[in-house]
Design a protein around this nucleic acid. Structure first.
Lengths: 333, 333
DNA sequence: CTGAAAGCGCTTACAG
DNA sequence: CTGAAAGCGCTTACAG
């Protein structure tokens, strides 16, 4: 076989197949352009020599890296998992290499990641978490790269967005709560822009309906179980005990449900709980959890479909795609 | 500013700074090699022109891609999350770009992913899930690339491994169970090589101790909540009801605990439950979950440390690093 | 310390 | 349909 240290190159294949490197390159990228017999000769050579193309060189020459970068706040933050799985699947099918970057919801870190991504000549950048830093947003606008923001619908998308209105989620929850007759809502708001939007949506509708003052507590992101425990303890100390707690994530809701049950409270009679995300655990809990469902898979698919349209030269289209959301009313509220 | 379509190149910087491209390249990769004044001139040019290096070209020329690929079965499979976070963090610090590939525990898919990874000239490949396909293992051995297998300690590592003995986990659980006086264990075994090893470790110790025949049930991977429900229903139908169920994952254990509680069983008196993974939920549950803890962060760090030693030319070292594991005895067993 | 020049392994007009 | 050749944007001995 070929030497182990230096891998076989196009030239090796060409020599073996007795054709030019151009022909081998065409075989690899556009086999239809060759005669059947030439193609067969090249195919045999590729196989015999166990040839693996160098995509670094290919990308440099063609000016198409076939890399798509996706930025996620964290991989444990499983709310984005469906979106990521769907995207990775579809991109791989299209011959792209999905690059996953972890931002830890840190704007500075995000800036560095974006540098690397640009340096790697990524053709598109997909954001799942919110990028708030204005300078980085401006920078991305200047660069020649497709940017898809997902899971939100910013007023001023960097390029295009696929998501839903977080404000509308808050409004919808407020209506749901009012409808069911709850009177003393408690909002647990993760410290992120999107949670803030859901919060204001809720508060606006609630106040407009003449509801009593909303109690709130803000939480650092990412949320974890111990926060849920903390929140529950805080609630017990409140003089006017809430009748429903609206959480920024299913995980927080789960933690509160566990604590409440352990403390002997009945859900939803003594305390109703609403989550966000509709993770698998929401349906599995007892009682089952009322929460907000977002079609993450669809977000992923729409993002890739958008990329495909761009690749096909379809530049002019709407800046944002709203995939909506649903309240999943279960037992906990 | 520079043209938006075609980005600035080294040559542009060199022209502006009135130096050769070689000097700019040195400034970028080894600034110490320049006079302070030259360095300053170059720095200004880089800044003025908003230069972002093309790492495709850089990698091709230097034959160092600075890409490290990590293969994970799925991002929802959160057992590997700590490992991944630790690795991604450390690699990014070292100036590497971590490439995350999702294998879906599918050997065929894994083969294709590895092709892409080799084509991208990755310098190392880190596996979290088990790669069972013998051909692919052989192929990786032939190729000039560092392969680190994590979370397991194969008898015949492709290259090096950082993990622990799954068989030892099974043995330890058997001893734990015997110690606590349980008599009718029920093993829920995910359909994977590693689970199989834990299973045999358990069965060997159990049988050696003269325990009654072990009841078992195998489950497709990845495990999900609905499987837990199914397993619990099966258990109820068994004539000789188990007194302890040993699960292949915390998620399965969690689902069974929820179902058992809902059915009025007391844990651990009526049914003890043991998980695997020690995810955050294990400590948060009520009752808290007894499970196996593995230091995933350490696995990630050791993997990167290994890479660093390799980069420093340290080829000859042991083929495997055992990070061990611990049984976390909580309330559920 | 700095520069001229060759070369990394591909792709792609261009010509035939 | 196929090939010769230029070029993608870097790095790195080599010489000075």
């Amino acid at each position: 076989m070929n030497d182990i240290r230096s891998r076989a190159t196009l030239e090796d294949v060409a020599a073996l197949a007795k054709v030019s490197t151009a022909t081998v390159s065409r075989f690899l990228n556009n086999p239809g352009a060759l005669t059947a017999s030439t193609a067969e000769r090249v195919r045999e050579a590729v196989e015999a020599i166990d040839y693996v193309p160098n995509l670094l060189a290919g990308g440099l020459a063609s000016k198409r890296s076939r890399i798509i970068a996706t930025l996620v706040p964290s991989i444990a933050e499983s709310i984005f998992n469906d979106t990521i799985e769907a995207m990775v699947g579809a991109l791989t099918e299209d011959g792209y290499m999905p690059l996953l970057g972890l931002t830890k919801s840190n704007d500075a870190h995000m800036g560095e990641l974006i540098d690397t991504i640009l340096a790697r000549q990524a053709e598109a950048l997909i954001l799942t978490g919110q990028l708030t830093d204005v300078f980085t947003r401006e920078r991305l606008r200047r660069v020649q790269i497709t940017v898809i923001e997902t899971w939100g619908l910013p007023d001023d998308p960097i390029d295009v967005a696929v998501g839903f209105s977080h404000r509308a989620v808050g409004e919808e929850i407020a209506r749901f709560i009012l409808d069911r007759g709850y009177r003393r809502p408690f909002l647990v708001v993760p410290d992120s822009q999107r949670s803030g939007l859901r919060r204001s949506g809720f508060v606006d509708v609630w106040n407009a309906a003449g509801g009593a003052k909303v109690t709130e507590l803000s939480m650092p992101v990412p949320s974890c179980f111990s926060q849920g425990r903390l929140v529950f303890r805080r609630m017990l100390e409140m003089q006017r005990r809430p009748d429903v707690v609206i959480c920024g994530s299913d995980m927080l809701a789960q933690a509160i449900m566990i604590e409440a049950s352990a403390a002997g409270l009945r859900i939803p009679d003594d305390l109703a709980v609403i989550g966000f995300g509709n993770l698998a655990v929401a349906a599995a809990m007892r009682p089952t959890m009322t929460t907000i469902d977002v079609d993450g898979t669809r977000i992923g698919r729409e993002a890739v479909a958008l990329l495909r349209r761009r690749a096909a030269g379809n530049e002019s289209e709407s800046r944002s795609i709203d995939v909506g959301f649903r309240i999943i009313a279960r037992e906990s509220a």
